[in-house]
Simulated scan of single mutants.
Amino acid sequence: MDVTTLPSISDWFDGVDQWREVLALLPVLVVLELVLSADNAVALAAIARRCRGQERERVALNTGIALALALRIGLILVAQWVLQNPVVQLLAATYLLWLFIDHLRSQSPDQETSDDASAEDSAPASLARVIFLLAFTDLAFSIDSVAAAVAISDQFLLVITGAVIGIVALRFTSALFIRWIAMYPRLETAGFLAVGFVSLRLFIHVLRPELHQPDWFTLVVVTALFSWGLSRRQLISAPGSDHAG
């Protein structure tokens, strides 16, 4: 989801700066990370599955998420500059749009065959590419959760703590979605449709900030997409469905 999803939360905690009060916000920040990262987790799971092997998936997730954590902390430290710089937000929106379009292209039989051959012929290069894709995909998604977290509190240590806990949870959520993608054939497409929707909302937020995007509409759309994604389960487990955990 994007930065416009939960603006009302900022009002609830406006002016809360005392540590004993701010520490009480840590569960809120963690939940915020998890709620805003559902589509992120599906995208990361789909990217990790390109490794075509349980062990490589695990290595890619562990390394990619570690790199993503470093990038998130850097984003938090320069959050105010990023949020005031529409070019950065446009780049993030463009990247998410590219992910969505790339997923659509990969659905063609010829492209899937090409991807499989590439993964088998050059596994080390593929692993490095997957790691960087995981890290920068999380960075693009992080603009919304970091924006919401910084709006709740200006205590950077607290925000970073919430981000660390959130990204550790994201690691295990992504591993769960790897298994679910194998079980639910629609889930990957639903996740990338959510990615495309997030990209569109971010474009609108940057280019037409005067247009009001209702919070409930985003929640309804994303909930509907994931409900559709989980609506059909494969009766027979596909080979290789035992993935990273």
Rank of each mutant, 00 (worst) to 15 (best):
R52W: 03
A60R: 01
L71I: 15
V82T: 11
L67T: 04
R49M: 15
A41E: 01
A60T: 02
L44Y: 00
A66N: 04
V42Q: 03
G64N: 11
I47W: 08
Q89K: 14
A38I: 15
I76T: 11
L104H: 05
S108T: 14
V78Y: 06
L97S: 14
V78Q: 11
A46C: 06
Q89R: 15
L61G: 06
L67K: 09
L67S: 05
R50E: 12
T63L: 14
T63P: 00
L61V: 15
G53T: 08
T63Q: 12
Q80R: 12
Q107V: 05
L44G: 05
L77K: 07
L90D: 06
D102M: 01
D39G: 07
G74E: 13
N40Y: 07
L61T: 07
A41V: 12
R72Y: 03
A43R: 05
E55Y: 08
G74V: 13
A46R: 02
R50A: 09
C51N: 14
Q89M: 13
A79Q: 01
A38N: 06
I47F: 05
A48V: 12
L71P: 04
A66G: 14
L99H: 00
A79G: 11
W98D: 05
R105Q: 11
L44K: 05
G64D: 06
R58V: 08
R49D: 06
R72D: 06
R52A: 13
I73H: 01
Y95W: 15
H103M: 08
Q107K: 15
W98F: 14
L71V: 12
A92V: 12
T94A: 15
L104G: 10
L61C: 11
A38E: 03
L67D: 07
V88C: 12
R49C: 05
V35T: 11
L36S: 00
Q107Y: 07
S106Y: 00
L104N: 07
D39Q: 05
L91T: 04
N40W: 08
V42S: 09
L90Y: 09
R58A: 15
E55V: 13
L61W: 10
C51S: 15
A60E: 04
L69Y: 04
L71D: 00
L97C: 11
A48Y: 09
N62T: 13
W98R: 08
A92S: 14
V78K: 08
A43S: 14
G64Y: 03
A66T: 15
A60P: 08
I47M: 04
L97W: 02
R56H: 08
I73R: 02
A92W: 09
V59C: 00
R58D: 07
L90A: 10
Q80D: 14
